[in-house]
Write a protein that binds this DNA or RNA. Sequence first.
DNA 1: ACCTGAACACCGTTCAAGT
DNA 2: ACCTGAACACCGTTCAAGT
Lengths: 183, 183
Amino acid sequence: MATQRTRLGVPTRNAVDWEEAALDAIAAGGLRSVTIPSLAQTLGVTKGSFYWHFASLDELIAAALTRWELADKATLATLAAIEDPATRLRAAFEEAMQLTRAQALFIALNATPDDAVVATLRRVSQRRIRFLTAAFRELGLEAKEARERALLAYTAYLGAFHLRRQALDIPTYVAHAARTLIP
Amino acid sequence: MATQRTRLGVPTRNAVDWEEAALDAIAAGGLRSVTIPSLAQTLGVTKGSFYWHFASLDELIAAALTRWELADKATLATLAAIEDPATRLRAAFEEAMQLTRAQALFIALNATPDDAVVATLRRVSQRRIRFLTAAFRELGLEAKEARERALLAYTAYLGAFHLRRQALDIPTYVAHAARTLIP
DNA sequence: ACCTGAACACCGTTCAAGT
DNA sequence: ACCTGAACACCGTTCAAGT
């Protein structure tokens, strides 16, 4: 993570290192578990140095959020490259069955009332819904039906990683969802 | 809330008052916003008195959780009393479209890695899935199909209040979900 | 350019003392 | 039976000083 070095050969941290540490911590323990001393310890510095990179804990969290949003865009772009729309949708759904850091983050973030957080989540959701709507249109649904189906698929997707997080065993879930939702 | 009075006529708080204040605070501002001083101020006492009722903040949260779980059971019982299974399912789904304290709580709680919290959420989810499975069986689906359909409906239900929380406008969502999921 | 270390206000927790 | 008020450790934030 820390790529730069001082003249004395001691590695130095940058804003990205703090953001990644914050994302790890949010996903692992929720927003409540993110403290400057614990992040500082992870990075091997004292907590005072945090304020050279960010003005406040809230600012760090906002920056980490933007980082996550860009990664989400990249994931969508990768999925969008799958030619067959049915395969593409199944691939998107299977993702909900892996509890990745990104998904744990989504849940943790949606629990915060902070306006900036909510705005980011809304953008991410709208992007995902557009992705799904496009796939359903390619499968032959007309515009309104495609959007409604996309909303249903997206809410099922979000709910599915809630259940994963609760460690509920749902082995045939994806196959059933695909059969029911993909025309 | 405070029903008892001392000899001098000064109202006194009990554990339930603290639990309700905690649930309000979690739903409104997430787990991170729950502090003993702020709850104490809401209840008009000093923070020291908290420890007469609970051993720790975690213990209060556990007790509040149990309270929420019982309320959820009661809601399910009310819905279960609706005779027609299709009407019953639609009523359950429409609930996701109202952002109640209970739903904000579910999201906030699912963001915590605490074992006790996760265990409670799992019990609540299983109860709800049983409720849905029973309704789909009544609608004529065979056991396996009814359970899979219940899981899909439940994940869509959970995801739907994520979207409500993000203030995304989805006017025809319930009608479409009902049409697609209810046989 | 990045970090340390001391400082201060605030929250979680304890507890002796009050009514 | 329930509450106050003072105490202490810990976290967020500031900042002067270091390299």
